[in-house]
Amino acid sequence: MVPLSWYIILSAVVFSIGVIGFLTRRNLIMTFMSIELMLNSVNISFVAFSHYLQSMRGQIIVFFVIAVAAAETAIGLAIIIAYYKNNPTIKVDEINLLKG
């Protein structure tokens, strides 16, 4: 039998990889993909919990996470396109409109 903690550790590791991707990549689209990766890693742990606790809740939450992730991607990519129209760059370290 596979212990629950293995799944959680896997999830943590994949999440951290997502964090690294988010923090280091210069390409805005790659940052986005890193976010998707993080969401997926969390989903793994939810499904694992759901299985081991014999509860449906985890799977339901994953369902909602996927729905929200889809919405988030659509909006995020639309923002990228809208931004790209004005400033033709998607380099993260050149986008600093929020600078105070």
Partner: peptide, 18 residues
């Protein structure tokens, strides 16, 4: 370049996170 200047900080953070 595909990584940012201070990519090491990011990697470090990720590892500590893990």
């Amino acid at each position: 370049k595909k990584f940012q200047k201070h990519w090491l900080v990011g990697v470090g953070t990720g590892i500590i996170f893990a």
